[in-house]
Design a protein around this nucleic acid. Sequence first.
DNA 1: CCAATATACTCACTGAATGACTATATCTAA
DNA 2: TTAGATATAGTCATTCAGTGAGTATATTGG
Lengths: 186, 186
Amino acid sequence: MTISNESRRTSGLSPEYALLGFLEQSRAHGYELHQKLLEHLGEIWHTSLSQTYNILTRLEEQGFIQGTTQEQEKRPAKRRFHLTAAGKRRLETWMTSISVCSVRAIRVEFMTRLYFLYTRNPADALEAIQAQTVSLQTHIARLKERLNNIDSGQIFNCMGMSLRIRQLEVLVESLNECKIQMSTKQ
Amino acid sequence: MTISNESRRTSGLSPEYALLGFLEQSRAHGYELHQKLLEHLGEIWHTSLSQTYNILTRLEEQGFIQGTTQEQEKRPAKRRFHLTAAGKRRLETWMTSISVCSVRAIRVEFMTRLYFLYTRNPADALEAIQAQTVSLQTHIARLKERLNNIDSGQIFNCMGMSLRIRQLEVLVESLNECKIQMSTKQ
DNA sequence: CCAATATACTCACTGAATGACTATATCTAA
DNA sequence: TTAGATATAGTCATTCAGTGAGTATATTGG
């Protein structure tokens, strides 16, 4: 159960860590979190309000966040969430981990991680880029080897793999540019 | 129902058209189709056998394919599928359409379309590349405009968008390389 | 004072994807 | 020759992402 939960994450990307990250900054309710997501990472996550609520519900069920219901005079009740100890640990583990080497994972998940690292301490963000770059490069090397092993008659398999490799190589370049951007902004 | 089915396809990528494409070449049963997928497009689609069966079941429910059960002496019954008229139309529509301009959609869906176009008639494949490239370029232009409109204080939104644009630009280069590859192979 | 919009959600559904399970046939090496 | 590995051919249950429709109230502008 717990295992499948962890192994699943390699493919399934969801803004759950972004929500945890914002909740670390300050407790908030669903709508607010959704607003923050839009404002700060809106070009990265295109998520609907309902999806945000879905994730919050799941995170609470799993014990990573806890909500306290506040009745309001003439409005529906708000649920103000805060991180639990387990949630903090989960966030911390994620913050110090490395993303799967897919274009999407880097553009979406890694960039999100970078955002939260950067707002805490820019130096950590630079380190993360370094680590992720190394990981990307070894992955690229593996894929290149695999490309060499494909029967060259399978030209679509070859082209597909070449395309993927090229995308990853550009990712490395882009991460380097991010590093420069972040350094000069300080 | 039909509408949601069509609109959904923008986000959800599945090898259903590849299955239709193989079924156009010759009728086949699930296991065979899965083998073909692995052999010819294995680097493009990483799909499980069960997923293949799921899709086939759905395609049959929707009336795009039809299976006839063949009892076997001492093996489980095979279901040999063939395209229906509706399925042929669906495949044809897809073959002549243009993919959504996302990295994944091009690498996966467009490459699959290209494979089937190419095995039918290489010239069609070259034309498809041309059309897809044009579409990509207008999309890139739109995104660049949007990038200019992002508050430059939102550096993560900016970086995320820049990264996406860069990926799409490389996609255009890659498609051009595919064109060259395909021309020289003839 | 009415309508539009913003706030704050809930609920039901589809589709992707995985993993566990069943069952039989064929091949292979001791 | 026979036990075990592998290939064939599926079914079934479940989890998660994501969408869309619906509910309900508060605020604001004309």
